[in-house]
Design a protein around this nucleic acid. Sequence first.
DNA 1: GCAATTAGGACCTTGATGGTCCGGATTGCA
DNA 2: TGCAATCCGGACCATCAAGGTCCTAATTGC
Lengths: 152, 152
Amino acid sequence: MLRLSKLTDYAVVVLTRLDDAAEGGVLTAPVLAGNTGLAEPTVAKVLKILAHAGLVEGRRGALGGYRLTRPLATIPLIEVITAMDGPIALTACVDNSFGVCESESACPVRGRWDPVNEAIRRALTGISIADLAGPPAIVPHPEPAFPIFAAE
Amino acid sequence: MLRLSKLTDYAVVVLTRLDDAAEGGVLTAPVLAGNTGLAEPTVAKVLKILAHAGLVEGRRGALGGYRLTRPLATIPLIEVITAMDGPIALTACVDNSFGVCESESACPVRGRWDPVNEAIRRALTGISIADLAGPPAIVPHPEPAFPIFAAE
DNA sequence: GCAATTAGGACCTTGATGGTCCGGATTGCA
DNA sequence: TGCAATCCGGACCATCAAGGTCCTAATTGC
C-alpha cells in the first residue's frame, strides 16, 4: 500500500496540537492524549521518539511537559517520517550492502531505485507540518521546480 | 520505513527481464524464475497479478508464456506499484470515509494528507520502468516542473 | 490423449507494527 | 526532607498483513 506507519500519522497530529501551547509553555502527555483522542501510552511513545529526534523538547518533573523546539513551518514532513519510520527506502537494495541479495548478479534494477527514493524524498521535503495543519487555503510552495532526475 | 512490498520490487525485475524476450516471443514463469533468481511460485504469483492489471499478457498451453503488452518506457512506475500494492495512500484517513476514525473531531490534519499523496503520486508517475532498467545514463525527464501544491 | 502452461485461489508461516506496561530519574513544592 | 508529578528508557505481548508455497482447474499444442 505504500503507507507510512500509524505512529507517523500520530506524530503529525501531536505536533500540530503541541503548537497550541502558549508561548514558551509546555503540554504534558496526558493533556495531549486528551486533545488528540489518542491513548496516553501511545502519545507518550510518540513524544519520546520525537524528543529523541530533537523535534520536541521534554522537561521532567512537576510542571514538566513537552514543547516544540522549532516552529511547525520549519519542520519538513520528511523529518517526521524519518524520525518515526526510519530513512526513506522503498526497497531493501537501496543501501550499498552487497552480498545480501541472492538475486544480486541477475538483478537488472540494482542501484536504480535511488533516484526514485530521491524523488520521493524531495517531495516530502517540500511539505512542512504547518502545511498539513494550516488553514484550508493552500500555500504555494516556494520551490515549485521539481526535476525528478537531477544530474547525479 | 515507507517501503513498498517485495512483490512490487519483484514485479519490476520480472518486467525488465520480460523485455529480453524476442519480438513477439513469450517467456514462461520457470524461465523467468531462472533468469531473475527468484522462486518459481513467487514469479508465477507476480505474473498473475501483472496480467490481471493488463501489464503483461499470458498465453496458456504448450508454447505458452507471458509477454509485455506495452514497451517498458510507456509503463510508469506508479502503475506497477498500484497493481501490486494497491492505490497510493499514505494514511488510512485519505478517503472520505467519515466515522471510522475515533479522533475524527479532534484531528487537525484531517483531509490534509491528500496533497502529500498527490505529490508522491506525481513523482512516481514521472518515472518509467525503462528508467529503472535502462542504461546507467540518466534520461532527463520530459516533465521537470513539479509544483508540490498545485491549485486545488 | 498427453504434456505443458497459465488461472485462480487456499493455506500457513513469519516478521514488523501497534499498543501497553514497568521501573528509574528528574523536578518542583509543601 | 519527603512527596507527587512527569519524563526517560526499555521490555513485553498481541495482532495483522506480507511472503511464500501448494493444489486444482482450464487451456493449448503436438
